[in-house]
């Protein structure tokens, strides 16, 4: 029995450090990120554009191109096995079977030159060795299950014949094909209309409940994760600044950045009248400064924030914040 399985964690990321080697220095895309995803739960990963959410998801599946990406340190334990130490061939078996991913833009997620159905079932044929006809039967079932009407006939359609919402459904079906235990959904609704967004989120929640899989739901809108997630991890400039149960974090935010995200989310505010975007820009990831990375934009900042190093510290059971003065956040 592996140690992580004892702890009930399906995925456990420890002090993950990723840099991009670019001209003019290294961009530190994640700095010492640690978190857990338990069996069957949904973790909401939120943060502004450029905070490193996509880099983190790709790193979990080892999809980052190297060069320029470099894993500088840390471990990614899935079921107690460090994915970062696996040979590529073994990693390939895990991709699409144990861990699957859904990407932001459904319009570009499928190859334009192949029938949708064949792409949806490709994983089944590669990983599970299904015959063409068996894969087809299963593919039609999958498409039907994610709400494509007339699935048998539309199996052979090409991506250009489907709308964005339908394509995202197909991409989700594709990710679900081999029954993954962990689904990474990287802003699965950002490219879609508002009404479609709701449907896709509902679909994901439904599939998750039925299949008992765990999910990391990425969004830059804290309102999106508020509705569907068990726990929340807030990411800022390559670090996690607050983690905890969703109700806890949203009801009692202990980091000014989390508060800022809540005040700037149209979904968190029924009337959307008091929307306040967070002023300022995130720091340059190529030149990390000592102290709290949020200091330039923080309305609670004090002198200590500039020099003292910050790290996630428990403020309540299971609830952690990287703010030096979590009690002052109101």
């Amino acid at each position: 029995m592996s140690p992580a399985a004892d702890a009930g964690a399906l995925l456990r990321v420890e002090a993950l450090e990723i840099a991009f080697r670019v001209r003019g220095g290294d961009v530190l895309a994640t700095r010492g990120v640690s978190f857990e995803v338990r069996q069957g739960e949904t973790l909401g990963l939120v943060g502004e554009s450029g905070s490193g959410k996509s880099v983190l998801c790709r790193a979990l599946l080892r999809l980052l191109p190297s060069p320029p990406a470099q894993i500088r340190g840390g471990r990614v334990l899935f079921d107690g096995v460090d994915l970062l130490a696996l040979p590529e061939a073994r990693m390939r078996e895990i991709r699409g079977t144990d861990i699957a991913m859904v990407f932001q833009n459904p319009m570009t997620s499928l190859s334009p030159v192949w029938p949708i159905g064949d792409q949806v079932t490709e994983g089944l044929r590669i990983h599970r060795g299904l015959s063409k006809s068996a894969a087809r039967d299963r593919g039609v079932e999958l498409l039907r299950a994610i709400g494509i009407p007339d699935a048998a006939r539309r199996y052979d359609d090409h991506p250009s014949q489907w709308s964005g919402g339908m394509l995202q459904r197909a991409v989700i079906a594709m990710a679900m094909a081999c029954g993954p235990r962990l689904l990474l959904a990287d802003e699965p609704t950002t490219a879609l209309d508002v009404t479609i967004q709701e449907q896709i989120l509902a679909l994901l929640a439904d599939l998750q409940a039925k299949n008992g899989m765990a999910m990391v739901l990425v969004s830059h809108d804290i309102g999106v994760v508020a509705e569907t997630c068990d726990r929340i991890a807030v990411m800022y400039a390559g670090t996690l600044v607050e983690t905890g149960p969703a109700a806890e974090v949203l009801g009692n935010p202990r980091h000014p950045y989390t508060l800022g995200l809540m005040r700037s989310s149209p979904r968190m505010d029924e009337h959307a009248t008091r929307l306040q975007p967070i002023p300022g820009q995130p720091p340059d990831l190529a030149r990390p400064a000592p102290g709290c990375p949020f200091v330039e934009r923080c309305t609670f900042a004090r002198d200590a924030c500039r020099h003292e190093s910050v790290r996630l510290r428990e403020v309540a059971p299971g609830h952690a914040s990287a703010c030096l003065f979590p009690e002052s956040v109101v």
Binding site: R58, L61, L63, R92, E93, I94, R95, G96, T97, A100, M101, F103, N105, T108, S109, L110, S111, P112, E122, G123, I126, H127, V171, M174
Partner: peptide, 12 residues
């Protein structure tokens, strides 16, 4: 193209 990365994520 993004669909190439999606294909890679499928374990191809």
């Amino acid at each position: 193209a993004e669909h190439v990365e999606v294909a890679r994520a499928k374990g191809l």
